[in-house]
């Protein structure tokens, strides 16, 4: 006989749910029947490199910062959820000659890919579209399984991408991360730690960027006022489209810093190459 602490017991249970989700992903139906799914469960301190790199990228990108801050907070509170990484090599074609990738045949696709394979912020390409759809079905089954086990089902591009860059699931061209948890109510929606990261003004700016016309005054003059405050007609703010060299420079620096961190974690660079 034993008495278990409820929170501790549920936190430990999350790993079992992660295993169940990996099982569900592997059992997902497919269209191409050629997907070779890879999975890995990463827990606790092993997630630190991912969060560190994510925070670096987040210095100039809100969506990566959004996740980095949330993970940092969960780690601090001892509530770090295990993360199920799902990945696959989506660059191998389904051999259907369907044309969705932009090439007439899978042969032409392979010829191009063998010379032009490259990486963006989240994955390697070019990609076979049907493989990407099959991979989506596998990820969806993992999410549905998580939901059935009363855990969160917020599958993430951000943590998956940095995991791939850090060398997890070697050979995968695309990796997504499904945190199994945290325990508690809707913590990915209601992120406590995010409350004070963006002030009201920045929150409003982000919202306006999503739909400026909602706040736009008469545009017939060719230089519309953007109503950014209650007395918007006094000392007005104008809508303007311009190049932003400062942002670009900051972005390039962030990417470089993140890349250096990744190379250090992967043991490619050390202090001898570049002093920390």
């Amino acid at each position: 006989m034993a008495v278990y602490d409820g929170l501790k017991a549920t936190q430990e249970h999350l790993l079992d749910v992660a295993r169940a989700c990996a099982l569900a992903a592997g059992r997902a139906p497919a269209l191409s029947h050629r997907l070779e799914l890879m999975a890995e469960i990463v827990t606790d301190d092993d997630l630190n490199p991912m969060i560190d790199v994510l925070a670096t990228l987040g210095e100039n990108s809100a969506f990566q910062l959004h996740d980095a801050v949330a993970f940092q907070d969960l780690a601090k509170r001892g509530m770090m959820p295990p993360v199920l990484l799902l990945g696959a090599d989506l660059t191998k074609p389904a051999l259907w000659d369907c044309g969705a990738c932009g090439f007439k045949t899978c042969g032409e696709y392979v010829k191009y890919t063998s010379k032009n394979k490259g990486v963006g912020i989240g994955g390697y390409g070019p990609t076979c579209v049907w493989k990407a759809i099959d991979f989506g079905m596998a990820c969806d089954f993992a999410c549905a399984c998580a939901a059935r086990h009363c855990t969160e089902a917020r599958i993430m591009f951000s943590v998956g991408a940095v995991s791939m860059m850090l060398g997890r699931l070697e050979g995968a061209s695309f990796v997504l991360g499904l945190p199994i948890g945290p325990i508690g109510k809707n913590l990915w929606f209601d992120r406590e730690a995010w409350k004070n990261i963006l002030n009201f003004e920045r929150k409003m700016m982000t919202q306006m960027a999503g739909g400026p016309s909602l706040w736009m005054a008469f545009s017939g003059g060719g230089n519309p006022i953007l109503k950014t405050k209650p007395k918007w007609w006094e000392d007005p703010t104008f809508m303007k489209v311009e190049q932003d060299a400062t942002f670009i420079e900051k972005d390039v620096n962030c990417q470089a810093k993140a890349y250096e961190k990744i190379m250090r974690y992967r043991g490619v660079f050390s202090d001898e190459d570049i002093p920390a």
Binding site: W96, A100, C101, V129, A132, I133, G136, M137, D140
Partner: peptide
């Protein structure tokens, strides 16, 4: 169209279709 599907398409959007199919099949 010259091929069954007119490409190229946005792969990350197409990837979304997998989730729709997956949940329907579930």
């Amino acid at each position: 169209r010259d091929t069954a599907i007119k490409g190229p398409v946005c792969v990350v959007r197409a990837h979304d279709l997998g989730y729709a199919i997956g949940s329907a099949l579930w």
